[in-house]
């Protein structure tokens, strides 16, 4: 038994070491003299948004194999940020040159990132923005690359508002309340609705989940017979809401919107069951982060925060 354990440890060590072991000197490589190793740390790879992001990064790496090495890590549970802290520590122990991270929590991850920076690791923040106040408090500046969730949601909200009349009842299905991107999206949706003079009758959390959103929407539809639109903070929940709307037989009256432009909603957009979603180009998000990391590692100055494009996705004739 002990031998097996020892063998497993050796094997694990080899696996960890192999990824970023110094390689032969590459003439195109930056001043360090070896290929830099970049660690991409994401939230749950079980979430389509992040698996797409990882795929985009891997593709970029395949095309640039000589320029850098890539390690992709995701966590099991979206809300368990301690897992991300462990990943950060592991990557520092593995002496990667840079960590590109989509934080699971905007505040709680910062101390671990500070330790990484103190160990000389370049940190780039993507997707979900770290809390600016806490960053100032610990004296860190970390460049951020990511979409403006507020703007994306506002665009979707405005698109729906154009299909409604002033004073109509609408409802919002939120993501996990503690997540910054859910808060930002809901703020965008609320702003769009208030600007257009709509009446938000209910706003509840669907926990990012299809099934939860379905139940909540069913309840909202029963409670508010005059409901005209249900705005969702992501596409998964929008799918659940569409099913609830269909079950209540009010597909013609109630408009549904999503966010993320996942593959499953494509058909829904075409047949009009979801009127709008927002594409934040997840596949390019990590790539942007990696490119900035490479540029800084090559000796260029650290850029300011970069906002990536958010595009409204609707059926062509509905625009």
């Amino acid at each position: 038994m002990r031998t097996i354990l020892f063998a497993m440890r050796v094997l694990a060590f080899c696996l960890i070491a192999s990824g970023c072991a110094p390689k032969e000197v590459d003439h195109n490589a930056p001043v360090t003299g070896k290929t830099p190793c970049i660690a991409l740390i994401m939230k749950s790879l079980a979430n389509e948004f992040f698996s797409t992001m990882a795929e985009g990064a891997r593709k970029h790496h395949n095309d640039n194999k000589k320029t850098y090495d890539l390690v992709v890590n995701g966590m099991k549970n979206e809300t368990d940020f301690s897992e991300q802290v462990t990943l950060i520590e592991q990557m520092v122990a593995r002496s990667v040159q840079s960590i590109v991270i989509a934080p699971a929590d905007s505040k709680a991850i910062i101390p671990a990132l500070k330790r990484a920076r103190d160990a000389g690791v370049l940190v780039i923040n993507i997707d979900n923005r770290l809390d600016p106040n806490v960053l100032i408090e610990v004296g860190l500046t970390i460049p951020f690359v990511g979409p403006d969730n507020w703007e994306g949601a506002k665009k979707a909200g405005e698109a729906v508002a154009r299909m409604l009349t002033k004073g109509d009842s609408v409802a919002i299905v939120e993501g996990i309340p503690t997540a910054m991107n859910s808060q930002e999206r809901c703020r965008g949706l609320r702003d769009a609705m208030n600007d257009a003079g709509m009446n938000i009758v209910s706003s509840q959390s669907g926990q990012w989940e299809m099934e939860k959103a379905n139940s909540i929407a069913a309840a909202m539809l029963s409670e508010y017979p005059s409901l005209k639109a249900i705005l969702c903070a992501n596409d998964s929940m929008a799918l659940g809401v569409v099913a609830a709307v269909a079950a209540s037989g009010r597909s013609a009256d109630v408009k549904v919107t999503g966010f993320d432009n996942t593959s499953a909603v494509g058909e829904m957009i075409v047949n009009g069951r979801i009127v709008a979603t927002v594409d934040q180009h997840g596949d390019q998000l990590a790539v942007h982060g990696i490119e900035i990391a490479l540029s800084v590692l090559a000796g260029n100055s650290t850029p300011k925060d970069t906002t990536t494009a958010v595009d409204l996705v609707m059926r062509k004739d509905a625009r």
């Binding site: 079980a46 989940e209 299809m210 099934e211 379905n214 998964s236 799918l239 659940g240 569409v242 099913a243 269909a246 079950a247 499953a264």
Partner: peptide, 15 residues
Amino acid sequence: FHCARLGSADPNAGS
């Protein structure tokens, strides 16, 4: 029943 209600198959279903 779950897929029928939602019209979709979700890998997170039933968590």
